[in-house]
Design a protein around this nucleic acid. Sequence first.
DNA 1: CGGCCACGTTCACGGCCACGTAACAGAGAC
DNA 2: GTCTCTGTTACGTGGCCGTGAACGTGGCCG
Lengths: 169, 169
Amino acid sequence: MDVVLVRWPHERERRELLAAEGQPRLLLVEASAEAPIPEDVLEDWIRVPADEGDVQVRIEGLRRRSGAFNARVPDLDPDGLLRLDGQWVSLPPVEARLMGALLERFGAVVSREQLAKSGWPRGAPGRNALDVHMLRLRRRIDPIGLAIKTVRSRGYLLETVSTAVAAGS
Amino acid sequence: MDVVLVRWPHERERRELLAAEGQPRLLLVEASAEAPIPEDVLEDWIRVPADEGDVQVRIEGLRRRSGAFNARVPDLDPDGLLRLDGQWVSLPPVEARLMGALLERFGAVVSREQLAKSGWPRGAPGRNALDVHMLRLRRRIDPIGLAIKTVRSRGYLLETVSTAVAAGS
DNA sequence: CGGCCACGTTCACGGCCACGTAACAGAGAC
DNA sequence: GTCTCTGTTACGTGGCCGTGAACGTGGCCG
């Protein structure tokens, strides 16, 4: 994801828009304007005209932050806490095991059989139990920006939701 | 937590030290030096001499980031005083020991067994005593911006109540 | 086309258990 | 005495998890 340059205060609405999208941005603040306080970690600013090297340093800083905070690889800790971007939800035992299977092949399809095996190592209950648990898992992870997609007759796959970071609440 | 000013490149080692402590810092970069790429989100820089207003904006930005992302870690002194952001409450012996256990793994899950051991080193009373003490602890720490979350059948975890999030929206 | 089936989604229910909360009582400090 | 700290009993509530059933949708076949 690349850093976008925004002239300030001329492109004020553009800044809001980009912020909502989670797009890293560098505000080029004109001499006559006051510097705005950054809305989030993905924003930085610099006064123009500026040294080209300084601009590059700011852009590189933003790029690194964006990498660190949008790593967007969820993490399931041993206590059943699923973390993503500083947010977390706790998963009950069965759902934690299902999530473990999905995470091992993050972004790829995991078959129902595989999931059933992971969720119930010593034999699965009724055929429908898996469906219900997938539904519950879906609802639980939605608020932290994760989604499970169905691939008909193949299985399920886990994804991050691109822009829904702030929209969830 | 306050922002510390560091002259760059003169106080190079000091920067490392502060970074290791998780201390927010603003580097004052001299005209002759190249700007360093920030090591983490708690660092920013500005060229000096600079406009005083610009410096304040950078400091305020760092302060917000530090509030939102670097979980402020509360401090429990030996007398049972729990401090956070200048506020404090006093904790009775049992609750102080429980809080100690939670603080050792701040932000992570601590099991009920672990808590029972910490709270009553020479054997726990009834099973329910822990529940009641967690309730009392919760009520006591709420006013200073701390919260204990339950992770069902796994344990409890201690968090700071994020004021930045509420303020942001 | 109509009917049937396979597959998936969603809801409602009940049993079980973990946890939360109030109320009470004794011990001790001040 | 009054207040705080502590532990106990009793009860309510809500989460977890499996089941059954209703519903939707797309594919296949006669």
